[in-house]
Each structure stands twice: as structure tokens, then as C-alpha cells.
Nucleic acid binder design. Structure first.
Lengths: 368, 368
DNA sequence: CGCACAATTGAATCCCCAA
DNA sequence: TTTGGGGATTCAATTGTGC
């Protein structure tokens, strides 16, 4: 990887007031680990909407959400996406949130610019606003796109184990059930009214940042608003760079973030993935005396057997032929399968019963 | 509305083998009530079109190549969407299903052609395939777009009450939890292998057809495959027109659909909405002797009173002034509200207590 | 202070016929 | 095409009020 300059210190953990495209273009190339963007949705609302009790829905009618047509919205979208891509590190990722009004246009623009979509994520709202007139399904979700800067960027950050822990031990899915930002979390003005019409819940940002960044990383948010991204970044020990056009929002965000206490390092460091644990060649188990050459390994079903050789390979034979090679190769060969994880496939006889050889690998890692 | 020719009888409940765009163009304009489309996610029509993750397009780092691939998918998408729009009735709706690989391009194309998105729907899979490599979130959903032919088409079919019933009495949301098509429902070939790689569950089509069509309607599916749309349409008393380029799939679909028994009419007719009930002028209650001129009506809170006049109007006075007019107008006026449903607002004194005048309207409708 | 009930609110492309 | 008017339409969660 070529050396890239870091984020200049005078941008770090700051909010820049101004046009986000200009601001991004003033940053050096490749200085950001992750982008989180909550752009205008281009809602195209018509007249007022009344609830059955005749109260008026407080709609998002701000000027910043108004675009003359799809062409204008698209050119705006493509401009900020391109600027964001320039400041992203090669292995950085981008999150964008939107609704059906705009998300298809954003996804198309992303793909056209070379971003590589990793997932689309559905934020299922536990308490959405109903459809008052009974003319459609309750619009109960929004969509996030998570994309790598580049198709070839394979080493993006994804804290798989942390997500699994958050999801009670099973893989985190692409549909997340989270409540709206209401109650005490919702920022209010002096008049008691909401400070920003579209403030996102911190739980949503928490999950995005935990999944796709590490402590010390720099997160850029080009549509900072009242600073949810900055608040969560600070709490989780990440740096942020906030871009916001409206100085009123920026001031609210500054005050909000200043009141956040970062969590302790050890609490925000992602659970290490198995992949990052030190590699242990199978032969080391033999060298360490945990397995003897000539020992017989067996698969969980008891259908397949293989013999341990001193060089750290296995040999086996069955109706498919004679097999010799690594624990993975022989595991695959005896099953006629394209691939096999030998560490969990092959078992040895222990006192307490049959155990996977991965058990022995863990002993090596523990230094036994 | 201009008169439109119906679907020709020789197309009805048939499968046309051939290119779906050609087939649609051979149909008259505006002859279809609903389209359900499950287009190729990866584009390999006749091996002529791209697949975004095709290994042959190795290391696509050339912007022009990327554009060329997506451009071909887009032109295919725009061609079939335009053909579908032509055969849709003005008040017809279209469903498309896709994944993050293609749905953004489809949504953009839809909007560009003038379709008006009504909802995006998330099919949450209760049993998705896990992410084996642990590099992404489990891809646990697919996305459907439901769109009207036109922004101005307000009278599209949406069986709100039926959906509400299906969802235990609360509005159906935009996220649907349904299992994959497996087990006995999954069509298998002689070799025991699945007959079609992307067969959709009938439950998914059931919900789309129940929501957005009526018995007797004609449903067009331009990517018919093994005929899930046809099977559900036949069971629910809808007509289908299936377009499929592969004669093998078409044959499987024909056999499958022939074995379906349509349900009884009364079982597939949507629950009627109140809007569809006959209108009863308030004055009819007076003519029928259910209310006497001079009777006093009262609102549920007891704050407002009005007097019934012989011509079917009400009169009332309060701090806001003197009010005279329809039950709705006077109800709104006494409250200072923008609107009011007089039938549920105004009550009369009955033996068992206070009852809404809607109770009397129901007696009229029942012919008492 | 607790409990019951009422009021408020959230990124919303939200009615429909007849004159 | 526009206007007027009948009358149909809401879920979950939090906050405020009254007893």
C-alpha cells in the first residue's frame, strides 16, 4: 500500500461549517477510515397530512430536502459520493442511509462510481409512524448501504465476532430492529420542539461503527446535522470529522459531543476474530507431542479415518481413492467436497470422548 | 377513462414461450391489472448479458468496463420495464423483487420511467443462508418494490383491510417475515435436484396478490420460471399470463398449475372497506323516523350539542359562533377543527346509553 | 407518590366522487 | 381541470395530567 497522509490534526474531532463537497475536497486523499452519510432523502411531499384525530403531521419540508427533479438530485448525489470516495482510504468503507425515495438512486450512483456493495441493511423501526389513510403498507423501515471503496478492497474492517456477540451468539443479519430516536435522546430546542427533523438513533450509529471501524479510526460524516455520528464516535474511541452546512446544527452538535465521556479502551475494542489469532500449522501439534505420528483421526460421523504423518500431513484411503495432503485437503478429498476445515472436521480420541483437533490448536495458542 | 381492450382470451391463463419483451409488445396496451416480475439478478439472458459478479470480468478497475456492464443490465431493465408499463392498465401496479446486486438499478429505472413507488417491501427470510466466510452481515432479506404506473394514479388496488386481518388486526408493515421456498413446495427434477435456482415461496406471491389485486384480475409475470405467480393466481381466482423463454421451465410450470384447485370465490374476495359501502344521506334517518326533527345530538365528551333540523342539517351554537350545515360541517365547526366525521362524532341518547348516529346508519343499510 | 388515562409524536411521496 | 364536500383513517412509546 502506498503511504497516505493522515487526517490533518486541525480537522480531527472538529465540525467544519460549509458545503460538504468543498470541505471534502480540501482534505487530503485517503485520510478517512469510514464514512457515514445521511443525505437529504428528496421526499417530494405533497400537501398537508392529517392524522385521524385531525392533528397535522410535522413533515420534513425543509429547503435542504427540495430538489427540482431526479436529475438535480442525481448530480448532487454523484458529486458528494465522488468526493467521499477520494478521501476514503483504499480499505475504507462507506455507509449511506435512505428511504425508497432516494436509496435506489444512491445505490446506482455508488455502483457506477466503482464502490462495491458489501451489504444492504434494513433498519426495521419498532415504532414507525403508521399509514394514516390506509392506502399503503406502513413504511416501517429505512435502508442502509454498506460499501467498500473498491471491488478489490478485501481487507476492509468487519468486526464479525463483535456483531455475533451483539446478536446473542449467532451471525448478525442484514435486518436490524431498532427504535426511533425519541424521548430523552431526541435533542430539543428552547421551545421544546425537535432540534433537527431527522435525528438518527445512537443505537444505529453504534452498530455501524462497532461493525466497521476500530478505536482510533477516523469517521467522516458529510451530513453531520446535530452530530449523532460524532457523539457515538467519541463514546467509542473513534475520531470524527463532521461537515455541516447549517451553523445552528453545528453549534448544537458541538455542545452535545462535548458532554460525551469516552468509554474505556478495553470496552470498545472489538472482540478479536479467529482470523487474527496466530496461525498454528498442524505440524506444530506433532512437534509439541500433542499428537503422535501414526495416530488415527476420525470425522464426527465416524465414516472417515486418516493417519497422521510425521511431516504434518495426513493419509487416507476410501472408495474415492488414496489421499495425502494437509488436514484440509484430505478432509475435502475423503468427502468428495470442494473444501473442508480440517481443524473442526478431524477428531481424536480423548479421555472424555472424541474431540476436534482444534482443541489441541487452542492448547498450543494458550502456550500449553 | 378511455376504453381499453381486455386481455385476448388466447393469452389468458397461458404461458408464452419466448422473449418477454417481444411477448409484451404483442399484447394490447393497458390489458393487465398487475405485474409481478422476478428478473434475473445476474443478467445471463442467453449468455448475452452481463453478470455483475462474473469471474470472467476479472479485476474490473476500468471505469469504462464497469459502465459497459451496468449499462447493458440497465438497458435490458429499462426495456422490459417500459414494455410492462405499456401493458399495465392506468390504475395497475407493478411488483419487482431483487437483491442489492440489481434492485437499485431497477428502482432508478422505474422512477425515471414515471412509475410511482408506493412502498419498498423487505422480505425477511426466516431461514437465510449464513455468511460462511464471516466477512459480511448475513444477507437475510430481499427487496420488493411496489409501484403504480403513474404518479397521478390514485385508484390502484390495495386491500388494506385484508392485509390488516392478515397481520392480527394492525396495519401490515413494509417488512415481511417469510420462510424460503423449501421442502415439499420446492419443485425438483427427476434427479432430485431443484428444478429452478430461484423459486420463490408461494406465501410471498400470496401476499402480493392478496394486497394488490382482486378476483378476476389479470396478473402478468414476464419472468415466469416455474410458475409460482401462476400457481398462486389460479388458487386465488386471478388470471395469469406467464412469459418464459425456457421451454423446460414453462413445461414444469404448466404441469404445476394444472394441479392447482382454485379456492372458492367467497374465500378469496378481499374484505370490503367502509369506503365501498353505499352512501346514506343523514336526512334518510329522519325520513325513516329513526331521528325526529328537534332531537338533540351530543358529542362523546359531552362538550358539544346540536339540534336536528327537518331538512337533514344540524344547528348549534357555542363560543365560536352559530353553526348550521351538515353533520360533518357542524361537527367540525363546533370544535374549530378542519374536518370531522359526523357519523362517529354525534351521538344520540338510547336506552342502553349514548350511541353514535352511525348506529342508525347501519340500521338503514341493513334495510330496517 | 403511584396509578390510570389522556395527549403527543415520528424522514409520509396517505381519499374520492361529483359538479 | 378545479373545487367542494362527504366521510374514512393510526401504532408504539413517551410525556403530561388528574386523582
Amino acid at each position: 500500500m502506498t503511504h497516505l497522509p493522515p487526517m490533518p490534526v486541525d480537522y480531527l474531532d472538529r465540525i467544519l461549517v460549509g458545503d460538504c463537497i468543498d470541505s471534502m475536497n480540501s482534505l487530503p486523499e485517503g485520510c478517512v477510515d469510514m464514512v457515514f452519510a445521511d443525505p437529504p432523502y428528496n421526499l417530494q411531499l405533497g400537501g398537508d397530512l392529517l392524522r385521524p384525530d385531525n392533528s397535522k403531521v410535522d413533515a420534513v419540508d425543509d429547503d435542504w430536502d427540495k430538489f427540482a427533479d431526479f436529475a438535480r438530485y442525481d448530480s448532487f448525489t454523484r458529486a458528494w459520493l465522488a468526493a467521499a470516495r477520494r478521501v476514503l482510504k483504499p480499505e475504507g468503507t462507506l455507509w449511506v442511509i435512505g428511504s425508497y425515495h432516494n436509496i435506489f438512486r444512491i445505490g446506482t450512483a455508488l455502483q457506477d462510481q466503482g464502490y462495491w456493495i458489501l451489504n444492504d441493511i434494513v433498519w426495521r423501526k419498532s415504532n414507525p409512524m403508521p399509514n394514516f389513510k390506509g392506502k399503503r403498507f406502513t413504511n416501517a423501515h429505512e435502508t442502509l448501504i454498506w460499501a467498500a471503496r473498491d471491488r478489490r478492497a478485501k481487507r476492509y474492517t468487519f468486526n464479525y465476532e463483535s456483531m455475533k456477540e451483539l446478536n446473542e451468539g449467532v451471525q448478525m443479519r442484514s435486518d436490524w430492529l431498532l427504535p426511533l430516536c425519541t424521548g430523552g435522546e431526541r435533542l430539543k430546542g428552547e421551545d421544546g420542539k425537535k432540534a433537527h427533523p431527522t435525528q438518527k438513533p445512537e443505537s444505529l450509529l453504534f452498530r455501524c461503527l462497532m461493525a466497521a471501524s476500530n478505536p482510533g479510526d477516523t469517521i467522516l460524516d458529510p451530513f453531520f446535522g446535530t452530530g449523532t455520528t460524532g457523539a457515538v464516535a467519541r463514546r467509542l474511541g473513534r475520531h470524527y470529522v463532521g461537515l455541516e452546512r447549517d451553523p445552528t446544527y453545528a453549534a448544537i452538535a458541538r455542545k452535545r459531543i462535548a458532554e460525551i465521556s469516552p468509554l474505556a479502551d478495553e470496552d470498545v475494542t472489538p472482540k478479536p476474530s479467529k482470523r487474527s489469532e496466530p496461525r498454528v500449522p498442524f505440524g506444530v501439534l506433532i512437534e509439541a507431542g500433542l499428537l503422535q505420528p501414526g495416530a488415527v483421526l476420525i470425522d464426527p460421523s465416524g465414516r472417515h479415518r486418516a493417519r497422521v504423518r510425521a511431516d504434518g500431513t495426513l493419509s487416507a484411503s476410501n472408495s474415492l481413492g488414496e489421499h495425502r495432503g494437509s488436514i484440509h485437503q484430505v478432509g475435502a478429498a475423503v468427502q468428495g467436497a470442494p473444501a473442508c476445515n480440517g481443524w473442526t472436521f478431524w477428531h481424536f480420541e480423548a479421555k472424555g470422548g472424541r474431540l476436534p483437533i482444534d482443541h489441541l490448536r487452542q492448547q498450543v495458542r494458550a502456550g500449553l
